[in-house]
């Protein structure tokens, strides 16, 4: 605690850096994975290949990926861009399957009824498929959010500042309190992300929270 009371401005700054790396990566992951997942669900043949590729991408360890990315994309090694790209790759790899499952979870009868009453293909996607996919999608996004926040720390090894800097710095200088602060702050940030996502999910899916209630008694006026 002594260490923290002397160094909290640095912790705050690193927390901000950590946020600025993880939040854009999470957002990009969702934006990229949802259309791919939708495609995978609609065209199972392409989908199988896409999902296979995604699970292979996910198998590549983080630190090596950080080192391969600059060689592929021409970004400098010690840059936030390298970090965001790597995190997005993992996020997409994890989320594509969830997104495909999420669209697969939409009752085809509901989708067909929507077509039958005159939804155009585009409004079926925006007004029916997407909102109904949110609960499953959100479960996946929560997993990705927590693992993204945790993965950001690896960037400290190549010199991208984040809460991970407390881990490497604390290790090199032999200060367990600094390392512990880094671990706890990272986990707290992950929990915060998770709580925000749960709250967002409640706000986005008011129908899902009450679905399990029993149907209300008959109240016909006639």
């Amino acid at each position: 605690m002594n260490w923290l009371s002397l160094n909290w401005p640095q912790v705050i700054e690193l927390t901000r850096d950590h946020l600025l790396l993880s939040a854009p990566a999470l957002l990009l992951s969702v934006l990229i994975a949802v259309p791919i997942g939708r495609l995978a669900q609609q065209r199972p043949r392409i989908g199988g290949a896409l999902l296979g590729a995604a699970s292979l991408l996910y198998a590549i360890p983080a630190l090596p990926l950080l080192i391969i990315i600059p060689a592929l994309f021409g970004v400098p090694l010690r840059s936030p861009a390298t970090m965001v790209i790597a995190l997005t790759v993992y996020g997409v790899a994890l989320l594509v399957r969830t997104a495909a499952d999420a669209f697969g979870s939409v009752d085809p009868r509901v989708r067909e009824a929507a077509v039958a009453v005159g939804h155009s293909p585009r409004s079926v996607f925006w007004r029916v498929d997407l909102p109904l996919a949110v609960p499953v999608l959100l479960a996946g996004v929560r997993v990705v959010a927590v693992s993204t926040v945790s993965l950001v720390t690896i960037g400290a090894l190549i010199g991208v500042p984040s809460l991970g800097t407390l881990l490497t710095d604390g290790f090199q200088r032999g200060i367990p309190a600094e390392v512990a602060t880094g671990i706890i702050a990272t986990m707290a940030l992950a929990l915060l992300f998770d709580a925000l996502l749960v709250a967002a999910g409640r706000a986005l899916t008011p129908w899902a929270t009450i679905r399990h209630e029993r149907p209300l008694p008959q109240e016909e006026t006639t």
């Binding site: 009824a113 039958a116 009453v117």
Partner: peptide, 21 residues
């Protein structure tokens, strides 16, 4: 087809209501 369907009322066995609306 889309305009046609909007001009015709359609009732299905399971109601076909959108659960999220």
């Amino acid at each position: 087809p889309v305009a046609l369907r909007r001009s015709i009322g359609y009732v299905l066995q399971h109601g076909g209501l959108l659960p999220h609306r």
